[in-house]
């Protein structure tokens, strides 16, 4: 059963109200370590958005035409992760060929993305909620944008927080987690606007 949802609505919901990072905790590892640097955060956000959109659509196609007809549900995790790893590998080669400049700013982040939980997470949510192809594309793209928005915002806040007097044991990770918590509360403020599961 495909849920009756407007793809555009789904897009906004996945950017704001059910942000993949702030409400589902996905992609935290690279989020905390990369957000130290504003420029890298921007690059990684871009790369995640790109990979997430492509892999969500591809995994939808693989799910519908390979996994379900052949009864391979028990291999789902392995198949998804192989698709993701392959796409990352191919993208790396294509970007290297087409635009060396983009490769310098984006290329170093691509290998990191294979083990980013957000990418696999979005694919699994897409499968669990039975989205259609169009809905999956908007969901993947929206979640990527949401992740990008969150990491850029956090990196900008951290630039300021670094200069603030913080108790010594709380410095670094501690204060960053509290900042993320406050950001998550702010994003929950959008919750009344759109209601999407």
């Amino acid at each position: 059963m495909i849920p009756d949802l407007n793809p555009l609505l789904l897009f906004f919901a996945s950017v704001f109200t059910s942000n993949i990072l702030l409400s589902n905790f996905l992609g935290m590892c690279s989020f905390i370590s990369i957000s130290r640097d504003f420029k890298s955060s921007n690059g990684l956000g871009m790369a995640v958005t790109l990979v997430m959109t492509i892999t969500t659509v591809l995994n939808w196609i693989v799910e519908k035409y390979i996994i379900v007809p052949f009864g391979l549900e028990y291999l789902r995790y392995i198949i998804y992760i192989i698709v993701i790893a392959a796409i990352v590998q191919i993208l790396e080669m294509i970007i290297d060929r087409i635009s060396p400049n983009l490769y310098i700013s984006l290329g170093i982040f691509l290998p990191l993305i294979t083990v980013n939980c957000a990418i696999l997470g979005v694919a699994l949510f897409m499968q669990l909620r039975n989205y259609s192809l169009i809905q999956s594309a908007f969901f993947g793209f929206g979640s990527g944008i949401g992740w990008w928005l969150a990491i850029v915002l956090l990196a900008a806040i951290r630039l300021k927080v670094d200069k603030a007097p913080v108790p010594a044991p709380l410095k670094g990770v501690g204060i960053t987690l509290i900042t993320i918590g406050i950001m998550a509360m702010a994003f929950i403020g959008f919750a009344g606007m759109i209601n999407v599961q």
Binding site: L22, S23, N24, F25, P167, A168, P169, L170, V173, G174, I175, L177, I178, I180, G181, I182, A184, M185, I188
Partner: peptide, 20 residues
């Protein structure tokens, strides 16, 4: 969700002050 971040931050705070 926000409370998970707060709780973990408090835990890190306490653990790190012991370590210090």
């Amino acid at each position: 969700p926000p409370s998970a971040f707060f709780m973990l931050a408090i835990f890190i705070w306490i653990a790190k002050s012991f370590k210090k």
